[in-house]
Design a protein around this nucleic acid. Structure first.
Length: 911
RNA sequence: GGCUUCUUAGCUCAGUUGGUUAGAGCAUUCGGUUUACAUCCGAAGGGUCGUGGGUUCGAGUCCCUCAGAAGCCACCA
């Protein structure tokens, strides 16, 4: 393609799909060292990430671009560094979420419930749904540019992964770490399933605290004494139906006399004991606590201590069951209302008052979760947690940012057993079979008879496993475990785990526990946690707030690269990020800037005539024909500096900073300074043009490599054009060993700056000061751009100093300073009226009038300079001179000297 | 109740072994259609780095106090 064909604006819409298809077809997403192939080298170090699997029925939301951008950056960086890189993609069956979605869909389209459909048919339909919609999310992830190896895509319900789940369950069971039994669990009445502690969210809400009387049961069958009662307060009056005791503090003088006696449950007229337990707070409420062991965790604990009976008074839908007497069949809230009004009629009510309390709600449906006694499967978690704790404590796993290690420890140290059974149909069915005699058969293969009694009449457990049980195996189940596959042997343990801090407990901790338990290895070395994406003003993104940001819309409007760059830059690990379209837009502009810089470079290369003399390597310029200018040396040195900085920042996971620095380099240094200077050189033609084009090409190439992990599409596209242009030009040697695509091009190597590079940085800095001063003066003086100014450099005695700047200027180039920024350099004392002081630079401009404003400005400047002098004098007189590093002290001394000179000059001018 | 994070320019945020005059994007003002880019270029204004202390030659950065915001975990009915 020639340069004329490159459009003025970067067309991401047509470019992105084409580039992605090229990468995929080229096999660049696959590890180059494949353990399944003959030429495999086991000594090559792999770099492996497993994707946090999105829900198979999900669609792209703003959280996806965040983790895809970071992970793709990590993967692309390591791929370019030469690692055999594997990013395993896949999706999660997401039990509850998917089942709900399919149920809703069935109800809407066919007006049929899952119960009406039956389990087998429902699961069949869900698979159909998965086949139909499961590729939406993976295609959207492709659109984000994710360089995953799609040939290794996995789904948590795949046969292989299901086998892993079965293996894991059986091992834990045989080890005695899985048990089944009735326990108080969190029950979601709408979903009609148990959920784990983690799936319950607590929110502070307005409620009522109801005060009522527990009448004392008359001894020996006498009649009730209306003055003998224990006042009790509760938020959930309906639980009265399940009360089995009233507890008071043993030292409570008010109620001591009742301990051991009985009280009467309102409306049910059951007698229950009054017990003493130190758990009860004398200060709170009435100081007496009703005990509902069947529906409250604390009451349950007290009941266990006192051997109290446990009554369940709610059914699976949270309606009152047969234990609720007259309230049977009523919904829990209905029963609450009715019970209260009945008690009012019976004269048992004291009062009710508004009260704020924390309400447990289901993470999924949002409904109020009910603690209930239910027979469920649990993982005895302590031994696993202990190992997982150790792995982070001894550094086998490092969490970034480090502060989350504390959170992790805290959670694992206080962990409770994990309820893993769910009363759902979509998921891994629990691999346990029961015979009529209730013997359990647990096996890797589906059994045909009871292992204990041989009965052929066996039935599999109805429940499925918590989704997170299978996700916990993800880093190794995706690689073939429990089989010792080549992939598993080579790629496991994986390298990084990158995900949001919100699933540290749900997922990361469980992967660590299960990884250690089943494979004997940590599943990954580094856990990198990113923050949550919020809206422009920091609010949580939710449908109810109406602030949903659709990444697809942003990508349509500004391109994938712009969105990715926005995600990566300006965010720090573990901290939430606010995203608005403004930032994405400005990054779209950056992509376009890059594109146009590319067009300029390609143009420069293509219009080059062969040079008369060969070029030397980039290096210090001596001003001669075939060598490099100060500007060439400077941009090259700046680039080396950038490579070093980026490397350091990548090593310390500061991707945002790295991106920012690359951005600044490309826009401010390369485009705004170097390209402008190069224009002059290119216009000269001959060796100068060749030299400039050579620098443009080399610097731009390395810039693209550095930027590629951030904005893969646009960099790949331009780089391809650059390579073609170079290969057709007299500079073809530059691109001689470039590979077929930027995605597999070598990462720039960092090195120490050489002496000439440090000099170039310093000298060019002086030029920049100079030029900025001139621009500044022009702007302040409102000098028309067409008007040429004379510039003269003088010392304090107005002796021309131009000569002193000559070497610098001539190595910058013979043309750029004079032609681009200043037009004449003759000394014309009569015109030389404005002094510009910029650091150590003193120049006079001719052709503009001096004014009162100049005087004011100079005075202001003098005040500033004097304050610096004062500060530095004080500093150098103090302990600083003795204690601070010598180089630093020296630097400050030079600075002071500079300020003193400047002050003198300004003073002279003001006279 | 325990733990954590945040508070820097009008807005959104960077600022990682403590070391020049604290930066960016957006917004604002002024000036520019110089043939890579108006999705651009040049310039300017704008900050007691939440408060008060401490450590240090030196603090936006480290320690403590307080105030405000957010989050996680555990929760007294």
């Amino acid at each position: 393609m020639t340069r004329q064909e490159l459009p003025k604006a970067y067309d991401f819409k047509s470019t992105e799909p084409r580039i992605y298809a090229m990468w995929e077809a080229g096999g660049f997403f696959k590890p180059w060292n494949d353990p399944n192939k003959a030429d495999f080298d086991p000594n090559v170090e792999p770099f492996v990430i497993c994707i946090p699997p999105p829900n198979v029925t999900g669609e792209l939301h703003i959280g996806h671009p965040m983790f895809i951008s970071i992970e793709d950056l990590m993967v692309r960086y390591h791929r370019m560094k030469g690692y055999s890189t594997l990013w395993v993609p896949g999706t999660d069956h997401a039990g509850i979420a998917t089942q709900l979605m399919v149920e809703r869909d069935l109800l809407k389209n066919e007006e049929v419930t899952r119960e009406e459909l039956g389990r087998e048919e429902f699961v069949k339909r869900t698979w159909e749904w998965k086949r139909k919609y499961g590729s939406i999310i993976t295609n959207q992830i492709r659109r984000l540019g994710a360089s995953c190896d799609w040939s290794r895509e996995r789904f948590t319900l795949d046969p292989g992964l299901s086998r892993a789940v079965r293996e894991a369950f059986v091992r834990l069971y045989k080890k005695g770490l899985i048990y089944r039994g009735p326990r108080l669990i969190n029950w979601s009445p709408g979903l009609k399933t148990a959920v784990s502690d983690l799936e319950v969210e607590y929110s502070e809400e307005a409620a009522n605290l109801y005060y009522f009387k527990y009448m004392l049961a008359p001894a020996g069958g006498g009649s009730l004494d209306p003055n003998s009662y224990i006042p009790v307060a509760t938020i959930r009056p309906e639980t009265i139906l399940g009360d089995t005791a009233v507890a008071v503090h043993p030292d409570d003088e008010r109620y001591k006399k009742y301990i051991g006696k009985s009280v009467i449950v309102p409306m049910l007229n059951r007698e229950i004991p009054v017990i003493a337990d130190e758990y009860v707070s004398m200060e709170f409420g009435t100081g007496a606590l009703k005990i509902t062991p069947g529906h409250d965790p604390n009451d349950y604990a007290i009941a266990q201590r006192h051997n109290l009976p446990i009554i369940s008074m709610l059914d699976a839908e949270a309606k009152v069951n047969e234990n609720g007497g007259p309230y049977k069949g009523q919904d829990r809230f209905e029963a609450r209302k009715n019970l209260w009004s009945d008690m009012k009629k019976a004269g048992l009510v004291i009062k009710s008052e508004p009260y704020r309390t924390t309400i447990p709600r289901s993470q999924r449906g949002g409904e109020i979760v009910e603690p209930m006694i239910s027979t469920q499967w649990f993982v005895k978690i302590e031994p696993l947690a202990k190992a997982a704790l150790e792995a982070v404590k001894d550094g086998r796993i490092k969490i970034v940012p480090e502060r989350f290690e504390k959170t992790y420890f805290n959670w694992l140290e206080n962990i409770k057993d994990w309820c893993i059974s769910r009363q759902l149909w979509w998921g891994h069915r629990i691999p346990v079979w029961y015979c009529p005699d209730h013997h359990m058969t647990v096996g890797r293969e589906d059994p045909t008879e009871c292992a204990t009694c041989g009965s052929k009449d066996i039935r599999q457990d109805e429940d499925v496993l918590d989704t997170w049980f299978s996700s916990g195996l993800w880093p190794f189940s995706t690689l073939g475990w429990p089989d010792e596959t080549p992939d598993y042997k080579y790629f496991y343990p994986t390298t990084y785990m990158e995900t949001g801090y919100d699933i540290l407990f749900f997922w990361v901790a469980r992967m660590i526990m299960m990884g250690l338990e089943f494979t004997g290895h940590v599943p990954f070395r580094i856990v990198y946690l990113h923050g949550l994406v919020r809206d422009e003003i920091g609010r949580k993104i939710s449908k109810t707030t109406g602030n949903v940001i659709d990444p697809l819309v942003l990508m349509d409007e500004f391109g994938t690269d712009a969105l990715r760059f926005t995600m990566l830059v300006g965010s720090t690990p573990g901290n939430d990020t606010n995203i608005g379209s403004k930032r994405v837009e400005s990054n779209r502009n950056f992509a376009n800037k890059l594109w146009n810089a590319g067009r300029f470079v390609i143009n420069a290369i293509s219009s080059l005539t062969p040079p008369s003399a060969p070029l030397s390597q980039a290096g210090r310029g001596d001003g001669g024909e075939g060598s490099y200018t100060l500007a060439d040396s400077w941009i090259w040195a700046r680039l080396q500096q950038l490579v070093r900085d980026v490397e350091r920042l990548f090593q310390t996971f500061q991707y945002g900073q790295a991106g920012q620095q690359i951005y600044d380099f490309i826009w401010a240094d390369f485009a705004d300074w170097y390209v402008e200077i190069a224009k002059q050189e290119l216009a000269e033609g001959g060796p100068r043009a060749a030299r400039a084009a050579d620098t443009l090409a080399r610097v731009f190439d390395i810039s693209l490599r550095l930027l590629h992990p951030f904005t893969p599409f646009v960099t790949e596209e331009i780089w391809g054009h650059l390579r073609s242009a170079l290969r057709e030009s007299s500079l073809k040697d530059i691109a001689i060993d470039w590979p077929d695509a930027l995605i597999v091009a070598a990462w720039p190597e960092e090195r120490q700056l050489e002496g000439w590079e440090a000099d170039a940085l310093q000298n060019f800095g002086k030029i920049q000061d100079l030029v900025r001063s001139i621009r500044n003066a022009r702007a302040e003086k409102n000098v028309k751009p067409s008007k040429k100014l004379g510039a003269v450099f003088v010392d304090e005695n107005h002796a021309p100093l131009y000569r002193n700047y000559l070497p610098m200027i001539s190595t910058l180039s013979s043309t750029d300073l004079e032609q681009t920024f200043v037009y004449e350099t003759e000394y014309q004392p009569s015109d030389a009226v404005t002094s510009l002081v910029a650091g150590s630079t003193d120049i006079y401009l001719s052709g503009i009038e001096s004014s009162e404003e100049d005087k004011v400005r100079l005075e202001k400047e003098l005040t500033e300079v004097r304050s610096h002098i004062e500060r530095l004098e004080k500093l150098l007189a103090g302990d600083f001179a003795n204690r601070a590093p010598v180089a630093l002290v020296q630097k400050e001394r030079e600075k002071l000297e500079g300020y003193r000179n400047t002050a003198e000059k300004i003073e002279a001018q003001l006279k």
